[in-house]
Nucleic acid binder design. Structure first.
Length: 558
RNA sequence: UGGGGCGUCGUCAAAUGGCAAGACACAGGGUUUUGGUCCCUGCAUUUGGAGGUUCGAAUCCUCCCGCCCCAGCCA
């Protein structure tokens, strides 16, 4: 399957010229997640960009975990992230952890102290903030700013040795407390955290801050182009400062706009809230924009990659219409998903003039978009199930489906004409009755008469009940984060984001498939088998409905 | 408020001084044994605004307006 061609964006143009000028012979990028949550489709943009660029330019891309904060991070997340990256379809050239570099970072920090460019500061967090000043007011120098190199070295070693409690002091870069760039006002490089790290255990009780660590990680790995999101733009001067003062390999940081999606929340913090406060069933709930959620829902990795290639890469903040994602999903599934007839809201259809013990098999086209998928036999009997919605007692003019006296086609089978209905004592329809025209085997009339409606169906004797989970968008507000003071994004949660339907009837041969299998229920949508399935009860997730111009038409006339 | 960024169709997004791509969405029509797919057609006389430079400006200059980011010992 070929991916859609990627257009030239400003980052690729920079790389083109770096290659042309001879600045670089080979391109090296990296995807640097912090293992403190699950990856979501916003990360997919970054993954596709970093791995995609490496591939296109014949370079390398590393997967590197930015695990510098043991308070938030966990091994559970690193495994899930590795799995997600692989599922998305990418292979890293090298796997690294920021924590692999803790010894080198420590040495580099001492080097900065020796250069007179870092000092141990005993200011409390509150005082540090006060001394920092504000956007409008310059900061003031810390009283500890002019300690001697020896004293700083000694203090820093004692910090490392665990002699001080958390919060008692930090190692700070000595830059400029009056800078208009806030992060240049003597930023913290190391803080004390007496915490167990998922990889280094209790070896360290001081941990490097992002600004100090990240540029070093890039430099150590000789990352040529360090791609990150816009909010780090203001950190770039500091990124460059460390590399320059330490005189080590100069990676170049380039910022691009992160992905925002309509009707969606893409922030690990808020996604975590949805999980922890049970608004959804987990990180992989099919309504979640996480890669694990999308995967479980039945979204193909290629659809996500193709989505990432059409949304572009630029510096302007934007919100992509979720319809673009949906389009890519349908586009991919239309090409690849085998078709199946499945009745979500069944009502029995009895063919009065069809012999009771007779079973015929019709050729069913597995995928009209893929001839190589071929055909398979599907059984037809006197009693069938059809969708309750496909029948109306008093149909409007534009309704092409079944109604009293109307003739419709049962897909691949026969033309049938409705003769009436059977009701229970409450007046509910329990059966629809019809007769078939034996001359129309396969669905065409020899006399050339046309019918507008074609219905899907399953044989009552060759089908079994399953559970189907119908999903809708998780939020009913285009930007759930755009709120007045005090209004929480969870107040825009769509109460109808999940509908569980039981006793949907599917063809018998569906028993052969396992969780992860994706197919199209004809005329309904794309569905995937959920891991919750058991041999006793299969569960299907609706990945996405088919486009439905009838529904649209109906909506208009109201 | 000091600094850093960004403004092109409803939504993304190209155009790199030469006469506003494309995709999605939307609207209309055709084909169709999925009201699906597919195929046509339409959809920015104008690029946040106002001036200026130029034969020519979305692109260059000036001023203005709007939005985003930074004041964690988070990343």
């Amino acid at each position: 399957m070929e991916e859609t061609k990627i257009s030239r964006d400003f980052i690729r143009e920079i790389i083109d010229s770096d290659l042309a000028s001879g600045k670089h012979k080979e391109i090296v990028t990296r995807f640097p997640p912090e293992p403190n949550g699950y990856l979501h489709i916003g990360h997919a943009k970054s993954i596709c960009t970093n791995f995609g660029i490496a591939k296109e330019f014949n370079g390398k891309c590393n997967l590197r975990f930015d695990d510098t904060n043991p308070v938030k991070e966990d091994i559970e997340y690193v495994n899930a992230i590795k799995n997600d990256v692989e599922w998305l379809g990418f292979k890293w050239d090298n796997l690294h952890f920021a924590s692999d570099y803790f010894d080198r970072m420590y040495l580099l920090a001492e080097q900065l102290i020796n250069l007179g460019l870092a000092y141990v500061c005993d200011l409390s967090p509150e005082d540090t903030r006060t001394y920092r000043g504000s956007l409008a007011k310059p900061g003031r120098n810390s009283p500890y700013r002019s300690r001697s190199i020896e004293e700083n070295l000694n203090l820093f070693r004692r910090m490392k040795n665990g002699e001080f409690p958390e919060g008692s002091c930090t190692l700070r870069a000595r830059i400029d407390m009056t800078s208009s760039i806030m992060c240049l006002r003597d930023p913290a490089m190391y803080r004390i955290l007496h915490k167990n790290h998922h990889l280094t255990g209790d070896k360290w009780c001081i941990y490097p801050m992002y600004d100090f660590a990240h540029c070093l990680e890039d430099s150590i790995e000789k990352i040529t182009h360090s791609l990150c999101t816009l909010e780090f733009e203001v950190n770039r001067p500091l990124y460059n400062w460390f590399l320059e003062k330490l005189d080590i390999y100069r990676s170049r940081q380039i910022e691009f706009a992160r992905l925002n999606l309509s009707y969606t929340v893409l922030s690990k913090r808020f996604l975590r809230k949805l999980v922890e406060e049970d608004f959804v069933k987990g990180w992989d709930d099919p309504r979640m924009p996480t890669l694990s959620g999308l995967r479980r829902r039945g979204v193909p990795a290629l659809a996500i990659r193709n989505f990432c290639s059409i949304i572009g890469l630029a510096k302007r903040n934007s919100t992509v219409d979720i319809a673009l994602l949906e389009h890519r999903i349908r586009e991919e599934l239309n090409k690849t998903a085998p078709r199946v007839m499945s009745v979500l809201n069944p009502v029995k259809l009895v063919i009065e003039n069809y012999t009771e013990d007779r079973t015929e098999y019709f050729d069913y086209v597995v995928n009209p978009e893929d001839e190589s998928a071929g055909t398979r036999p599907t059984p037809f009997t006197r009693e069938l199930y059809i969708e309750r919605d496909d029948f109306m007692e008093d149909p409007p003019r534009k309704f092409f489906r079944m109604g009293p006296g109307r003739e419709v086609r049962l897909r691949y089978a026969y033309l049938v004409t409705c003769t009436g209905v059977t009701r229970d004592e409450d007046g509910c329809i329990t059966e629809i009755r019809c007769t078939y025209d034996p001359e129309t085997k396969g669905g065409n009339a020899p006399d050339g008469r046309r019918v507008k409606g074609t219905l899907h169906w399953v044989s009552a004797d060759h089908s079994f009940p399953v559970e189907v989970r119908l999903y809708d968008r998780l939020f009913n507000k285009e930007n759930p984060m755009d709120n007045e003071e005090g209004v929480d994004f969870t107040s825009h949660l769509n109460p109808d984001s999940l509908h569980v339907v039981t006793n949907c009837m599917v063809e018998d041969h569906m028993r052969n498939y396992k969780p992860g299998f994706i197919c199209q229920f004809e005329r309904k949508g794309y569905f995937s088998i959920d891991p919750d399935s058991t041999p006793e009860k299969m569960v299907f997730n609706r990945t996405i409905p088919l486009r439905d111009s009838w529904k649209k038409l109906k909506g208009k006339s109201k």
